[in-house]
Design a binder for these strands. Structure first.
Lengths: 241, 241
DNA sequence: TAGTGGTCTAGACCACCAC
DNA sequence: TGGTGGTCTAGACCACTAA
């Protein structure tokens, strides 16, 4: 029950926050339908229109999916959405292809200064380190290092199989839904290691994407450094509109 | 007057489209207030709520600014908004600074194959070419080439002064409001020319941002190639949320 | 105080889906 | 056919701005 009339915050924001907390807490799980608007309105003690507004905003943020005639559903992780939202690799002609992923290494180790600072944890805190190569048409185009805190993903460093879409793993095994990312882009000469994995000469310019991914509840859950060979591919950004 | 009840498209979309066309056509000019919701509703033959929804969506897309107690205003170009929306240069520590701009050259010439293809014009069509350097703390960090069709910006190639924020010029002198951008990012070795302007060694990796900017009415109005020295600065992207 | 946008409600009707 | 979300309306009241 919401409906405190002393409110400084609008009712629809309170409703949105309450619904969000239920998603975060797992009270409603990905893929499940929410109660309909009238039931939610009755439960929260507001009108249907207020619930509608809250749900509409959540749909705009991709937290729920609304389907006319069927209902409102907790968003399931869609690898294509992620791929194109967080990783817009395109061919020179603008077409998009889904890269394949090969896991190179995978271990438990301290986070270290740089990652710790990015994720807001201690440098000695344990984390799972993964190295991967992404391939397009069988040729390596991205060499990346992914680091996640063991406190948030316990045991991930010991698992045998890491699926290609790691964000699906985060969601389905740990209930962590990645919803935001902050990326810092720069150009670097390829290190010896990166050059080896990408099959290019050491010192070749590579696009470096340092990403901090955030979960629904605002926690920073992943640090990632992607080194991209952009001689034949581009990283695309669409802004505005 | 809208309100055709045979509609396939919702009324609020028709209202939005009609208002957008008035912005594009200059019927309402940047900075000017729109009529209030009731007057617009009466003019279009819809209810206030429908106008409200149309305006709310336009506010979300940054086309108008709504201020409680004052009214709804046609958005004026805000250089800071653009800078951070289209060009998020950040220091290593994440702070943002507005770069200064120096115009290096400025001439009228054919668009050429690459630009013509990007802008959807003919390679022989005339265009204004501008070269600029952007500086942070007096040091060059970005060397960029900006090309715009003479058909859209007639005489720009002959003007003496080009202001630092070129998008303000587009808007105030030509009524062209840049609202979208598509960017392709890659890493390149600095050419001799870029190296000279950036004060770096030839072959140093630079971040290349090839941008096609779109106007409110959907026309592609600018092609731009920015070569960024990212040794001490980053280009930041915020996704999701 | 008058006028604006912001919130909230209540209810009608439509479009779509599943059964 | 019944239930869902989508659109649209009408009207009340609030919050903010400006004169």
């Amino acid at each position: 029950m919401i409906s405190e009339r002393l409110r400084q915050t609008p009712l629809y924001e309170q409703v949105r926050t309450e619904i969000l907390q239920r998603l975060v807490s797992g009270y409603w799980k990905p893929g499940e339908p929410l109660p309909n608007e009238f039931d939610l309105a009755a439960e929260f003690g507001v009108s249907q229109g207020t619930v509608r507004r809250a749900l509409g905003e959540m749909a705009a943020r991709n937290l729920v999916t609304r389907i006319q005639g069927r209902g409102t559903f907790v968003r399931e992780y869609d690898s294509r959405w992620a791929l194109f939202h967080f990783f817009h690799v395109v061919e020179a002609d603008g077409t998009r292809h889904e890269p394949k992923t090969e896991l190179i290494s995978h271990r438990l180790a301290p986070a270290g200064e740089r990652v710790a600072k990015a994720l807001g944890i201690g440098p000695e805190d344990r984390a799972t380190w993964m190295e991967r190569v992404r391939l397009l048409d069988g040729r390596p185009v991205i060499y990346e290092t992914v680091v996640v805190p063991d406190a948030i993903f316990p045991g991930l460093g010991l698992v045998n199989v890491i699926p290609s879409s790691i964000y699906v793993l985060y969601e389905q095994f740990y209930g962590v839904l990645v919803s935001t990312a902050e990326e810092d882009l720069s150009a670097l000469p390829a290190s010896a290691e990166a050059a080896r994995h990408l099959g290019i000469a050491e010192g070749t310019p590579v696009l470096a994407i340092e990403r901090i991914a955030g979960a629904l509840d605002g926690r920073r859950v992943e640090w990632r450094l992607s080194l991209c060979d952009t001689r034949e591919h581009r990283y695309r950004n669409h802004l505005g509109g």
